[in-house]
């Protein structure tokens, strides 16, 4: 049972979504506080702000997709029926 719950938790969309939300928040925050030297290096583009927001949006989209279309319940199959399985 715990196994099946874990398998549901372990969806690649959750991994991508989680990582990009974290990256998005960090980079956006930096983008707010970029000083003029940073801006000059980036040719005046507020690149941290824009990339941060972009990554945040991608992360949230992945999580939204996961919510709207959750992975199917894995087939009823117990570890015990397969002899010699690890764990």
């Amino acid at each position: 049972m715990a196994q099946r719950k874990l398998a549901r938790l372990f969806d690649v969309r959750r991994v991508i979504g989680g990582l990009f939300v974290v990256y998005g928040v960090i980079v956006t925050l930096i983008g707010f506080f970029d000083d003029s030297a940073e801006l000059e290096k980036a040719q005046g583009v507020r690149i941290n702000l824009w990339m941060g927001l972009g990554m945040l949006a991608l992360g949230l989209l992945m999580l939204l997709w996961l919510r709207l279309n959750p992975p199917p319940e894995p087939p009823e199959e117990d570890a015990e029926v397969r002899p010699g399985a690890p764990e």
Partner: peptide
């Protein structure tokens, strides 16, 4: 080295 400020540089 020339173009990326800290933040996107890390990415």
């Amino acid at each position: 080295r020339d173009l990326l400020p800290n933040g996107v540089l890390g990415v």
